[in-house]
Amino acid sequence: MPIPSRAALVDHLVRTRIAGDVATPRDNNLSHYRKLANGDRHFWLGLELGDRWRDEQDVLAVMAERCGVSDDPEHRFGQDTIDPELTVAALDRAAARLRKAADGTERVLFATGHPGGLLDVHRQTAAALRAAGCEIMVIPSGLTADEGMVFQFADVAVQERGATLWHTHSPAPMAAILDALEREGRPMPELVVADHGWAGCAAQRGLDAIGYADCNDPALFLGEAEGTLQVAVPLDDHVLDPRFYDPMTEYLLDAAGLL
């Protein structure tokens, strides 16, 4: 697959609705922003936000700036957006951190709470970093969280429930991994590449973390704004076909010097 130019990637993101006019409706976005502001920790994604984001309009302002949703508080229903230029800019920031990991042959942990969409993005990135000399961390065995098992599939930590890879926003699976590493006296990852609560939990523990996040998951963008999270990449995290993410991943790895 040829490496897309920046302009070609922007066009691809819009055509496949990874960015641009995304499937996530405006009322769902605003509902999540409100619940986060009201202290619903499910929407904090493992971050400790305290009382700093109690005004949902402040949350909306950050999401408009960092994700590209409409900044109009009166726009309450219908279409919302992710700015594809912000997606590519975040991919460039993520690429710089991946390059640093490769240059330092760092220990890197990959995880996803959205295996139906992002598993192969993480798998391809892990393979590229391993080829560059990084250690792709193997998690301890026998871990459980939220009534499910936590294990690795294709180098990516996931949660399994009922023989199904589970969509989860919870930070508990990442907490289980990090706690087990500490119990076993093993070193912590130097970089975590993840999404949802997996990324938020790692960042809150003081680890460098890159997180992919949809426009209805504001916590990671707030974490980046506060400097807790290294990079939050805005995108629709479950589009029609997971192969649609391939050009984005190719762009990321090329920008990181990993191809």
Score class of each variant (00 low, 15 high):
Asp80Glu: 15
Gly78Tyr: 12
Gly116Pro: 13
Ala145Cys: 07
Thr81Tyr: 15
Phe77Val: 03
Pro115Ser: 03
Thr144Ser: 12
Val138Tyr: 00
Ile139Leu: 04
Gly117Pro: 09
Asp179Ala: 09
Pro115Ile: 12
Gly113Pro: 03
Ala157Leu: 02
Ile139Lys: 02
Phe110Trp: 11
Thr168Ser: 12
His169Phe: 05
Arg93Val: 04
Gly117Phe: 05
Asp83Lys: 04
Arg107Tyr: 08
Ala132Arg: 11
Arg107Ile: 00
Asp83Phe: 07
Val158Lys: 01
Ala127Ser: 13
Gln79Phe: 10
Leu118Gln: 08
Phe77Lys: 01
Ala132Met: 11
Gly117Asn: 14
Arg161Trp: 02
Gly116Trp: 09
Ser141Arg: 14
Met149Val: 14
Gly148Ala: 09
Leu118Ile: 05
Ser141Asp: 12
Glu106Tyr: 14
Leu118Tyr: 01
Val158Met: 00
Pro84Trp: 01
Gly133Arg: 08
Glu106Trp: 14
Ala176Phe: 04
Ala145Arg: 05
Pro140Ile: 10
Ala95Ile: 03
Phe110Tyr: 10
Asp146Ala: 10
Glu160Arg: 12
Phe153Trp: 11
Gln159Phe: 04
Val121His: 02
Asp179His: 07
Ala172Asp: 13
Ala126Thr: 07
Glu135Ala: 13
Pro173Arg: 00
Ala145Val: 01
Gly113Asp: 05
Ile136Pro: 07
Arg123Thr: 14
Asp92Val: 01
Thr164Asp: 08
Arg123Ile: 00
Arg97Pro: 08
Asp146Cys: 06
Pro173Leu: 00
Pro84Val: 00
Ala90Ser: 11
Phe110Leu: 15
Phe110Met: 13
Pro84His: 02
Met174Ile: 02
Gln159Cys: 10
Gly162Ile: 09
Asp92Leu: 07
Val108Asp: 09
Phe110His: 11
Leu165Glu: 11
Gln152Met: 00
Asp179Trp: 04
Pro84Ser: 03
Pro115Lys: 12
Val108Phe: 10
Cys134Leu: 07
Pro171Asn: 02
Phe151Val: 07
Thr164Ala: 02
Thr168Pro: 00
Asp103Arg: 15
Ala101Ile: 03
Phe110Thr: 05
Ile139Cys: 02
Met137Val: 13
Asp120Phe: 15
Gly104His: 13
Leu91Trp: 04
Asp80Arg: 09
Asp83Ser: 05
Ala175Gln: 13
Leu129Ser: 04
Ile136Gly: 03
Arg107Cys: 06
Arg99Val: 06
Ala128Ser: 12
Asp80Cys: 07
Val121Trp: 06
Leu118Trp: 09
Pro84Gly: 07
His169Cys: 07
His169Val: 10
Arg97Thr: 08
Ser170Glu: 04
Ala157Gly: 01
Leu143Gln: 06
Gly113Val: 05
Thr81Gly: 06
Leu119Ile: 09
Ala101Met: 03
Asp155Leu: 13
Glu160Gln: 12
Val108Tyr: 08
Arg93Met: 05
Ala95Leu: 13
Trp166Ala: 13
Gly162Thr: 07
Leu86Gln: 03
Ala95Met: 09
Gly142Ala: 05
Thr168Ala: 02
Leu118Ser: 06
Asp83Arg: 10
Thr125Pro: 07
Glu85Trp: 13
Ala126His: 04
Gly162Arg: 14
Val138Trp: 05
Met149His: 14
Leu118Ala: 07
Pro84Asp: 04
Gln124Pro: 03
Ala131His: 11
Thr168Val: 09
Arg161Cys: 03
Ala127Glu: 15
Ala90Lys: 08
Arg97Gln: 15
Ala132His: 06
Leu91Met: 11
Ala154Phe: 12
Ala145His: 01
